[in-house]
Design a protein around this nucleic acid. Structure first.
Lengths: 231, 231
DNA sequence: CGCAATCTCAAGGTTATCTCAAGGTTGCCT
DNA sequence: AGGCAACCTTGAGATAACCTTGAGATTGCG
């Protein structure tokens, strides 16, 4: 959910940066801003954001017109920002296909909650399941599924696997792996990491001594071979 | 839905009986009428109806004022009846929190449809009951049903359970759970969460020390195992 | 205001998980 | 071939995470 792109549309620079920082501090990374309807359409010609936060008051094209233009080409969810007291805006917006609205001024948290609610509704949870050669791993449940059997992963095993799956196919160095487990100072932890790797292999490999999914790359690190590459 | 109580508010006796009969012939059984704002407030002091059908034109207190009074004490859905041509009433009513409006004169069927639409929206049909291994939890009533016995959940227990049920099967981190209970700053609350978890287990588990539904995933969080997977 | 229910927190106990060491294996390099 | 370095494997002790209980604080209701 955090990796959905958010497009913020407002003509006021201050508001744009404020909204951006609200999302950034909440952990969102993909935030684009646009100052006019023209810009929005230009952005959308290239890529489709996960949600649009749209201020009703715009210089070149009012928010409702823009909403119509957007709807003409995409079903992307839209949250409208309306000025206080413009009661009718709410209905006009909904009628044109806005997903929600928020009256200015608003609390940062309120904006976040609404956006999150919309994203949740619009993009139902995809199961985070990684398929390997002999087993599958359900990251949401921290379980390995092999021969219909479910085996739980421990916290460290989970962290290791998550990091490897994140970089599926690529080599992940021992240093990086150790850091995800015990932070900056990880020298001397390599031996422990090895033990966790072993346990992980016992859960996901047919033969943990002859791994085919969680491979050792001597001198460099480890890498995970996934069957259907993520995404 | 048919068992929701309907409160009809109108100063004209003829209209009251007419509306009442519309609902009665549609199968609704719980219909109360009131002729004035005073009466409405008196009724609401005793019980909360499922929906209020409110005529804008009233003798002692106009419909908008009454709506405000109602909203001050309750979020009960309200359908406003407005006289023909009073276009602005629509918005005035919406702003004060009306859920819909209907212009007089109206067809019986139209009234029925609108009321049904509101009820459907306000009181989602689905029984929110989660079935577990040894017990079932009724989220609407905040009760645990075990061996035919009903045990109420406390506020915190309910919040925890709701969050877990929302992510049934998936792991919910301690941080997320704490946040649902006490907001952003939750460090140091883990110990209290644990106590609530314990109490919850005492209510939903056969043996709270050997949980089978509300499982601990050490180092990651908790997860709820539901019997009939939601959906 | 007083009671009861609920919430919070601390102390001591329990256990799965983590850590680490010791000895074994593999495979590369000269 | 032999040596060495990197990695594997196993087990047992240490530990952090969690459990359990009780008692005091807080809240809400009559």
């Amino acid at each position: 959910m955090l990796d959905r792109e958010i497009l913020v549309v407002d003509d006021e620079k201050d508001l744009r940066t404020m909204i951006r920082s609200i999302f950034e501090s909440a952990g969102y990374t993909q935030i684009t801003t646009a100052a006019s309807g023209q810009e929005v359409l230009a952005v959308m010609a290239k890529k489709t954001p996960g949600i649009i936060v749209l201020d009703v008051i715009m210089p070149d094209m009012d928010g409702f017109e823009l909403l119509q233009e957007i709807r003409a080409v995409s079903k992307v969810p839209v949250l409208m920002l309306t000025a206080k007291g413009e009661a009718e805006d709410r209905f006009a917006g909904f009628e044109l296909g806005a997903d929600d609205y928020l009256v200015k001024p608003f609390l940062p948290k309120e904006l976040l909650l609404r956006v999150q609610a919309i994203l949740k509704r619009a993009y139902p949870e995809k199961e985070r399941v990684v398929t390997l050669n002999a087993a599958a791993v359900d990251l949401d449940r921290a379980e390995v599924i092999r021969d219909g059997q479910r085996t739980p992963l421990t916290a460290k095993e989970y962290s290791i696997f998550e990091k490897l799956a994140e970089n599926a196919g690529r080599i992940v160095t021992i240093g990086v792996l150790c850091q995800t487990l015990c932070g900056e100072i990880w020298q001397g932890y390599e031996t422990t990491l090895m033990t966790h790797i072993r346990h992980l292999r016992e859960k996901i490999e047919e033969n943990p001594s002859k791994p085919v999914s969680l491979l050792t790359v001597k001198g460099l690190g480890y890498k995970l071979v996934v069957k259907e590459p993520e995404k």
